[in-house]
Structure formats: structure tokens, C-alpha cells
Nucleic acid binder design. Structure first.
Length: 825
RNA sequence: GCCUGAGUGGUGGAAUUGGUAGACACAAGGGACUUAAAAUCCCUUGGGGCAUGUCCCCGUGACGGUUCGAGUCCGUCCUCAGGCACCA
């Protein structure tokens, strides 16, 4: 054994050992309990960053711990390999996205391997590989057949700089999630996944995902946005048409005095046609549609509208209600039309005051009567109905149902449920993505590519245009193809799929990455699914996690997969911070993981990431902290070095006070680390416990240790256990020390140490004595001491007596093994 | 505005079921070793007090409450972070 800890040498040695022996390769083993552990796969951007390191170190601890606990652990890794940065880089370097991506994957794989992560690399997948996206295309066709995919013309979010359509989930505060530029609205044909069909189930199962953080579930619930209400039809005057609205306040129908339509609503233009308002409306609609989203409905945007020149009829009051086109009405939510009740909705109130429209109070607070003339804001609280015919005097909440039912019986609407969640538009006008397997026939329309012709391979021998525009529509040899149905010369779909599609099912494919008879091998799926523990950043709380849940349910209903939810347990890890801010190039506070590995070794980097904060919290990066982790490993090294000749020891029947103490420390630490890692994912406290143990062991004077059998044996047990406890966190140094300490056959197949509850018990207890809740003394009592004995010793303490002087004892509370509180007054 | 977290020493954090607040580490200060430095090791380290102790007082964002006992539970408020946001 070398006197000096040399991570560079030992890390290389053990990584090769694990790799050549294929120690992390797994297969189905029905004799063992399976454990599917997954970390979110990375986008191959070129180099790993500290966020990856943290994510994967956390996962590796869990994986190695579960292996040691006897589970059959599936721990795979792969690449989310399609996406825009590859295209941007290709344009910049006059290269090809595929080449750039593959180079990056090779580089990042090499970097990950230097961290010593316990992946089964035989299961590696890259989503840009035709063998992967073939099954995605196949699934697209199955979903199309099942009615879960459809094509529609829709107003979509469009990002000019990225030259692509964005899903609603990819728009953040009116701006593109990737480039941050304002998003505009544009009408376009595209393919949609019918995620709304699962809105209810996705929402309901939020209540059953006990292993998910509450805030992620809350975010998903809000995103789905279920609201109960009514749909109501308002007949348009002098027309056969009606306007349908959704409202959560059917109790206020009697107070509806006008109608607001979204500028996108087709009725705006059609109703105003031929009226004096035609040109005004046209101008207003044009302006609203070309305006960027932020300035139209963003914060502080002015509410504006124009009269469309026609009226509709309130089904309950018969009132003539002017129809307005209003910029704040969202076309995508509900029906794109809102019945306006100015007395009870602040937006309608503002609008009515601005344009001089009538206000009718229909809900009064319990203690007063509102007058439209004196109101300065809408009354949105609950109360009792007025001006509402037969419903007057009734409670507004109770009446919601009655009014909905009345409308239903009139054929003018009825109760309904509306969701904020909208279908997932997946068409992207990008090159570097999975082709949508559709052929557009001039005679038959869009026809799916037959299964035997899958995959539709993304052509790779192309020149990449500098404009950033997708080259696909210009590739005649690829685009032009006969219709699979009638043979007519047709065009392929040239849009590719949103890259979130690939990440919505990659965890399934890991169970059978090379299976070629279907998307999933039922046997593998049955054994491995679902993922027992998923680990990744909170930033995917809605997008990726909701899509994956949807895909899982769709796959289940297609009979491809068994489980109905993809991830049993979810751990969302915090960000890596430096100088108080997220690491980023623009801030210049980036730490390169590989430089750290060069300098300290992977074990130090791993240890720091795990020790400095619990996983779900942000981790503040400090150079001093890394030094501290490195120093600790050096201390452990020299501790083992000091005892390296303890190799052969006799088991001893004799016990000394010292050996007994060491064994107690050992078994207490085993218990603590096992619970912290296994049940709580608190790696920082587990490591702290190991540090405490090493501090205790360091205090043992080594002079007589080789002659004292009992001490010798206890020490060997302690050091062996300590190495085993360290091994999930810092596997390389643990393997090396294990070997140097005279133990055989690597650590990865070693069982996790067990603690003996008998050995943890103290002979003496330290009991805190309080007087009126304040600590006044500590007493040592025998383990067997009765409550009365404890009380007596407590009373005997001088300092306790001092505080009892002149008082009478009212009560004594004894907490077994911990504390006595003497209540005196 | 709504929802969800969080607020503890100079710093990161610990306190798992209401029971000794500050484990473990970092930083800082002092000491040992050394010709010297680095490395290493040892000691001190929440604030205050004096009578320097097995001492006392204060202290977990603020103010109340429940309790023998509150960092932990309840109420009101403040601050910060994240998510959603004209969602009818």
C-alpha cells in the first residue's frame, strides 16, 4: 500500500476493473427484487457541467447502495440527442448536426466514465439513432389509428429567431423558452397529441403519486387547470348562429350585459361583415393578431375592444347584449368567448366603465345592497342573488347547479368541465429531429407510412443551409415519394417531432434497448417497469414529466406497456450555485468538472457534491469545500495505512471497555448511514456520520492495538465497515482501501453491513434535567434505572436544588432515556 | 394577485415522532512540528455577563398562542426563491 493517496492511479485502475468485469451489466433475475433507478439523460451539448455531475453522483449513490442491499439494479444512461443546438453548431462550423452530436456524445461518455458511475453501458441509447426513432414513428402511427394524434390548422406560438412553432409548455411569460425572444401568433397546420383526453386521469393520479414532491404535483395540477362550470349558448340576433361560452359563474348569467370575443374568433369578422363596424373590426383584429403576445396580453397591457355591430340574447333575461371583440380574451381557453358580467368580474367591470356599458348587480354581499352607480370595483365574493327572477335571495354557490340545469333543460347549455391543458402540438419546422412518418397524397390526403417502410430515416448526406431553415422541404429526392395507398406521386411530411417526444418514452426503451420485434419487449417491461426512482432537475416539473405520464398511459391503452405511471418516486435535485448565482457562461462563474477531476480525482468531486447540501436543495460551490473533501479522503487513507497490518486477526471472545466502545461507534454509524441513504436520501448527514466515526477511530492510540485481541478485532471490524459505508459515495478509494486492507474480491458484489441492535445500546444514559423547561444539569444513570431512581438523582443535583429553592414541585415529566423536567412554582 | 417552498452562527448545513439548538464541515484566531514555508496535527470559535463555573442571561425572520417543554404544532405578519398569471 502506497503511503500517499493517489486518485489518478487508483481511479483509472478501478474503472477498468469494473468495465472489463462488466460488473454493472444487468439482466432479468427473478430470484432478486428489481430496482430501476434512472437519472434524466443529458442533451449532448459537448461537455458535462456541474449540474450533470451532481445529478449523476446522487443517482450513483442510490444505485450502489441498492446493489449492496441485494437488489437487481437497472441503471442506464443515454442521450437526448435531437435538438436545435446541433443545428446551430452545424451552421456555425459548416459541419453536420449528426457529426457534431456524435462527437459530443463520445466526449461526454468519456467524461462520465471518469466519474466512476455504475451504468450498464450496454444499454446506452441515443435518440437520434434510427433504431430508436423507428419505434417512435411506429408509435405515432399507432396513436394516429387510435385517434390520439390528429392534424389541425391552428393558431400557434411561433418564434421568429428559432424559425419554429412552440408548444404552450415551451412558452414562458410570452417568450420562447430557449432564446427568450417574444413569441408571435401564427396560423399553421400541424400534428397534435391528444393529451387532453387524459386530462382527468393525469389530474386524478396526482393524488396517488405518493413518492413525488408536493410542489411538482401542485405545478402539474395547476397546469392541467380543471375547472367546473357551465357552457351557455347566446343566440345572435337576426341570425341562426349562437355564441358558446364557458363560465365558472353560471350564477351570474342574469347580470351578463355584453359579450366579449377573442380577436381570433371567426365570428368577429363574420358578424361584423356588412355592418358599419366592418372596417373597424377588421383593423382591430389584424392589429391584435400581428401584435406580439407579450404586449397584447402581457402584464400591464391595456384592455381594448370594439363593438362588432351586432347583438346576442341573454337566454335567461332576454336582454340584448352588444357583442365586442376584446384583446384580452384568450382564444385557446374555453370557447374563446366570454359572457361579460361587469358587476362581478373585475376585467368586465373595467371594460364596461371604459366603454360605457351597463352594470347589473346580481349577487349582493350578506350585509349590504350594491348599487351599480357607486361601485368602484367588481364584487367577486359570494353572497345572495338579486335581479335573478326565481333565484332571488338564494345562495350564489348553491344556485350554480340549479341555473346550469335550467339552461340544460332549455337546450341552451348545461354543466361542463373545462381544462387549461391543451393538446400537445409536436410539429417542428426543424431538420434535426425524428421525421413524422406521413406522406401527403394529393388524392388521399395525409397517409401514414406503412410499418414495413419504417423507419423514415432522416437524410444525412445534405448540405446545411446558412439561413437556419430546415433543408428537408428542398430535398426533392427525399420528399417526393409515391402514396402508399394509391401510388400517386406525393410529398413526405417535412416537419419533425418535438424533441420532448423522444424523452417521453426513453425510460421504457432502456428495458430492452436492442429489441427489434417491437417498441417494448413485454417480458422486460413486465419485470423492470415502472422506474422505481427517478432523479433530475425541477425545471422539468411540467414539460417532460407530464408528457411522460401521458405517453405511459397511451402506451398502456395501446397494450404495449403495463404500468400506468412511469415514475414511482421522484427526487428533484437543486441547482449548483456559485457566488450566489446559477453557473452560466454569461456570469463567468462556471466550474469545469473535468478540471476538478484532474486535480482532485472523481471521489473528491463526488464527496463534495453529496456532502455540501441535501440533494433537493441548491448546492453552493466553494473551492474550500472541495479542499475539505479532499483532506478527508487523505485522512481516511492514512488511517487505513496506519492499521494496514491488522490484516489477520483472531476473533476475540474477550471484550474490553475500549473494544466495546469502538463496536458501539461502528454499529451506530452503520445504522445511521443505512437509514440516511436508504430511507431519506440524506447523503450529507450520512457522510457526516462517517466523518464522526473516523474522528473517533482516529483517537484510538495504536500502541497496544496489535497485542490486544479484543481491540484489534473491534478495530478491524470498524475499519472494514467504514470502507463499506463509504463505498457508494467514493467507490474508487473504497475499493483500493478494501483491497489494501487485505480483503478479497471487489466491493461491488459485497453485501451492505448489518448492525447489531444489541451493540448500539449504551450501558449508561445521559439524562438532561430541566427545571421549568430549562436545562439545569445532566445526570448519568444506569440503563436499568427506574423513573423513580432517575427523579431522585435529578433532584439530588446541586444546580437543580438551587432552582427549586423556595418552590413547590408541581409535576415531573420523564421522557425515557432522554430527559426529566421538574415543574415547580 | 394565486399556488408551493424556504428563512437556524462569519459560511454550507444538522437537530428523523414536540424533548440537551448549532452535529459534520468550511472560514477565522491561537499553538505544535519546521532554519523557513507548504502539508499535517492539537486547541478556541452563536452573542452577552461575571463570581471563569457541571455558572447565569439572551438567541432558530417578527409578534402572539397551544404545551411541563416549540427551530419543530397553530394564528397573524415580514422577507426571499420557484411556479402560474387578464384562464372567464
Amino acid at each position: 500500500m502506497d503511503t500517499k493517496y493517489n486518485p489518478e492511479v487508483i481511479e483509472k485502475k478501478w474503472q477498468e476493473y469494473w468495465e472489463t468485469k462488466k460488473l454493472f451489466k444487468v439482466e432479468i433475475d427473478t430470484s432478486k427484487q428489481k430496482y430501476y433507478l434512472l437519472e434524466m439523460f443529458p442533451y449532448p451539448s459537448g461537455r458535462i457541467h456541474m449540474g450533470h455531475v451532481r445529478n449523476y453522483c446522487i443517482g450513483d449513490v442510490v444505485a450502489r447502495f441498492k446493489m449492496a442491499k441485494g437488489f437487481n439494479v437497472l441503471h442506464p444512461m443515454g442521450w437526448d440527442a435531437f435538438g436545435m443546438p446541433a443545428e446551430n453548431a452545424a451552421i456555425k462550423n459548416k459541419s453536420h448536426p449528426a457529426k457534431w452530436t456524435i462527437n459530443n456524445i463520445n466526449e461526454m461518455r468519456r467524461q462520465l466514465k471518469r466519474l466512476g458511475l455504475s451504468y450498464d453501458w450496454d444499454r446506452e441509447i441515443a435518440t437520434c439513432h434510427p433504431d430508436y426513432y423507428k419505434w417512435e414513428q411506429w408509435l405515432f402511427v399507432r396513436m394516429l389509428e387510435k385517434g390520439l394524434v390528429y392534424r389541425k390548422k391552428s393558431v400557434v406560438n411561433y418564434c421568429r429567431p428559432c424559425a419554429t412553432v412552440l408548444a404552450n409548455e415551451q412558452v414562458e411569460a410570452g417568450c420562447c423558452w430557449r432564446c427568450g425572444q417574444p413569441v408571435i401568433q401564427r396560423e399553421q397546420d400541424g400534428w397534435f397529441f391528444k393529451i387532453t383526453q387524459y386530462a382527468d386521469e393525469l389530474l386524478e393520479w396526482c393524488d396517488h403519486l405518493k413518492g413525488w414532491p408536493e410542489r411538482v404535483l401542485t405545478m402539474q395540477r395547476n397546469w392541467i387547470g380543471r375547472s367546473e362550470g357551465a357552457r351557455i349558448f347566446f343566440k345572435i340576433e337576426n341570425s341562426d348562429e349562437s355564441i358558446e361560452v364557458f363560465t365558472t359563474r353560471p350564477d351570474t348569467v342574469f347580470g351578463a350585459t355584453f359579450m366579449s370575443l377573442a380577436p381570433e374568433h371567426p365570428l368577429c369578422l363574420s358578424i361584423s361583415k356588412g355592418t358599419s363596424q366592418e372596417s373597424v373590426v377588421q383593423e382591430f383584429v389584424n392589429r391584435a393578431l400581428t401584435q406580439d403576445w407579450q404586449s397584447r396580453v402581457g402584464e400591464g397591457a391595456e384592455k381594448e375592444g370594439v363593438f362588432v355591430g351586432a347583438y346576442c340574447v341573454n337566454p335567461l333575461t332576454g336582454r340584448r347584449m352588444p357583442i365586442y371583440c376584446a384583446n384580452f380574451v384568450l382564444f385557446e381557453y374555453g370557447t374563446g368567448a366570454v359572457m361579460a358580467v361587469p358587476a362581478h368580474d373585475q376585467r368586465d367591470f373595467d371594460f364596461a366603465r371604459k366603454y360605457g356599458l351597463d352594470v347589473i348587480v346580481v349577487v349582493n354581499p350578506p350585509d349590504q345592497s350594491l348599487e351599480p352607480e357607486t361601485m368602484t370595483e367588481a364584487y367577486v365574493e359570494n353572497g345572495f342573488l338579486v335581479n335573478s327572477g326565481e333565484f332571488d335571495g338564494m345562495d350564489n354557490i348553491a344556485v350554480k347547479k340549479s341555473i346550469s340545469e335550467k339552461l340544460e333543460s332549455m337546450g341552451m347549455g348545461g354543466p361542463t368541465i373545462n381544462y387549461r391543458l391543451r393538446d400537445w402540438g409536436i410539429s417542428r419546422q426543424r431538420y434535426w429531429g425524428a421525421p413524422i412518418p406521413i406522406i401527403h397524397c394529393p388524392k388521399c390526403g395525409p397517409i401514414p407510412v406503412p410499418d414495413k417502410d419504417l423507419p423514415v430515416v432522416l437524410p444525412t448526406n445534405i448540405d446545411f443551409p446558412e439561413s437556419g431553415r430546415s433543408p428537408l422541404p428542398d430535398l426533392d429526392w427525399w420528399v417526393t415519394t409515391p402514396c402508399p395507398k394509391c401510388g400517386t406521386s406525393s410529398r413526405r411530411e417535412t416537419d419533425t417531432m418535438d424533441t420532448f417526444v423522444e424523452s417521453s418514452w426513453y425510460f421504457d426503451r432502456y428495458t430492452c434497448p436492442r429489441y427489434d420485434k417491437g417498441l417494448l419487449d413485454p417480458e422486460q417491461d413486465h419485470y423492470w417497469s415502472p422506474v422505481d426512482q427517478y432523479i433530475g432537475g425541477i425545471e422539468h416539473a411540467i414539460l417532460h414529466l407530464l408528457y411522460s405520464r401521458f405517453f405511459t398511459k397511451a402506451l398502456r391503452d395501446l397494450g404495449i406497456k403495463q404500468a400506468g405511471e412511469p415514475f414511482e418516486n421522484l427526487l428533484t435535485q437543486g441547482m449548483v450555485i456559485k457566488d450566489g448565482a446559477k453557473m452560466s457562461k454569461s456570469k463567468g462563474n462556471v466550474v469545469d468538472p473535468e478540471e476538478l477531476i484532474d486535480r482532485y480525482g472523481a471521489d473528491t468531486v463526488r464527496l463534495f457534491c453529496l456532502f455540501a447540501a441535501p440533494p433537493e436543495r441548491d448546492l453552493e460551490w466553494t473551492a474550500e469545500g472541495v479542499d475539505g473533501a479532499y483532506r478527508f479522503l487523505n485522512r481516511i487513507w492514512s488511517l487505513i495505512f496506519q492499521y494496514k497490518n491488522l490484516k489477520k486477526v483472531r476473533n476475540s471472545n474477550v471484550e474490553t471497555i475500549q473494544s466495546r466502545y469502538i463496536r458501539r461507534v461502528t454499529h451506530r454509524t452503520i445504522k445511521k448511514v443505512t437509514e440516511d441513504v436508504g430511507a431519506r436520501f440524506r447523503f450529507n448527514t450520512a457522510i457526516a456520520a462517517i466523518m464522526e466515526m473516523s474522528n473517533e477511530l482516529g483517537k484510538v492510540t495504536s500502541e497496544n492495538i496489535f497485542s490486544d485481541d479484543a481491540l484489534c478485532w473491534a478495530m478491524k471490524e470498524a475499519l472494514d465497515s467504514m470502507i463499506l459505508l463509504m463505498s457508494p459515495f467514493v467507490p474508487h478509494i473504497s475499493e483500493e482501501l478494501w483491497e489494501a486492507f487485505g480483503n478479497k474480491s471487489g466491493l461491488t458484489k459485497r453485501e451492505w453491513p448489518q448492525y447489531d441492535p444489541q451493540l448500539i445500546i449504551e450501558e449508561e444514559l445521559i439524562i438532561v434535567v430541566q427545571v421549568n423547561g430549562k436545562k439545569r444539569a445532566e445526570i448519568r444513570v444506569a440503563l436499568t434505572a427506574s423513573d423513580d431512581e432517575i427523579k431522585q438523582s435529578a433532584m439530588a443535583e446541586l444546580n437543580v436544588q438551587k432552582f427549586l429553592e423556595g418552590r413547590t414541585i408541581r409535576k415531573m415529566v420523564v421522557v425515557p432515556g432522554k430527559l426529566v423536567n421538574i415543574v415547580a412554582g
